[in-house]
Design a protein around this nucleic acid. Sequence first.
DNA 1: ATGTGC
Length: 480
Amino acid sequence: MIDKADIRKVAPFIWQIDKSYRPGMNVPAIIFATEQILDGVLKDRSIEQLVNVTSLSGIQKAAMAMPDMHEGYGFPIGGVAATSWPSGAISPGGIGYDINCGVRLLKSDCRFSQIEQYIGKLGHEIYKSIPSGVGKGGDIRLSVKELDNVLQHGSKWAVKNGYGNERDLERTESSGCLENAYPNAVSEKAKKRGIDQLGTLGSGNHFLEIDVVDEIYDTECADAYGLFKGQAVVLIHTGSRGLGHQVATDYVKIMMSSMEKYGISVPDRELAYAPFDSPEGQRYYAAMAAAANFAWANRQIITHKIREAWESVLGRDARLTLLYDVAHNIAKIEDHEIDGKSRKVIVHRKGATRAFGPHHPEIPEAYRVVGQPVIIPGSMGTASYVLAGTEAGMLMSFGSTCHGAGRQLSRSEATRMIDGKQLMMELRDRGIYPYIGSIKELAEEAPEAYKDVDDVVDVIDRTGIAKKVAKLKPVVVIKG
DNA sequence: ATGTGC
């Protein structure tokens, strides 16, 4: 266990464990948190995991953790690690099991008050058209060859096949398609698990929500993003389902056994990695990209289905426009300023969201002056946020920020302490329409099982690694 | 997160 005395406060809401803390650390570990959040995470293994991450080969500047950090597989969730391209480490544990888990926000053109009377019907139609739950498949039938096209082209495949439009692609991180995807690097088993799962939600913390824009903090950004107070919006949070999970499983195993060959030793086997430019590293990166593309196609198809439901209830001219789609479990090759020079790095974001500052060429033109939209889903029934990337974030955290509220109770602790039925009634009491697949799993997602998303986002805003633009309040929650 | 454990 890490002692609080070994953690130094270096700036407001920024904590550091120096490189001298333990042999084998290549860089310091940095945590963005309030003291209360820090005290909370000292109780699990997440800070120790962050210290382990500092030993990755080629890691640059620091291993970083966002205020939503908690224990994960090998790496903490809420972690950011950039390693030198091309021969630094790539680690499946630094991306996570749900490859390209992510969030997108759809903007309606109406106020919530205008559609309030239809809200139950909207919830029902959306719930009906998007399968949810563990292992659940959908109604999209793909041949193996067509699945390979999905893996190769992601959202571009979806749009080409009638699920959405070109504008959706512009408003998706990486246009919803990583070019280096290689379907042959994805095992038959992974493909088998994913082949009927396009257009499905999954379970756990994945959800669909109808929200109201509750508060605007930054008018210039909100205007650029097309957000206004009282607006009805739709939030989608899901990933690559069983396919991505299997890719992660496959490559953790491969890298655990290839480490010896490369003379790699890690403080924790779950941190297994390979040099990015090794055959194992390259093959994982190509498979990860394919799984990421699957997740983007999934969110794009779900978008299409929600639009159909929306139009069927509200009429054909009711529009849902994509604000933006972000990945929060992914590795990317990016250019970042290190020691005053621009360097290519492999940025691992595990439960962390890309948040590029103003004028970055990868941001859609409409948002370029104000910075990339960042979407932060809160815990069930609380609040979610839209943030904007900043110049400070580019320099302090490799253009990264938090991804959500972050657990504070493990799934088993939450199940033990919280009653699902009562939680359901509480949601209703607060005016939220819940559509819940499994009451049994609901307790795991109770607000008490998570940190306070307001506190988490305030740390981000106060340190300046992103800034608050809008707060969203849920009115319909759909979960698997 | 996940056909929720090897």
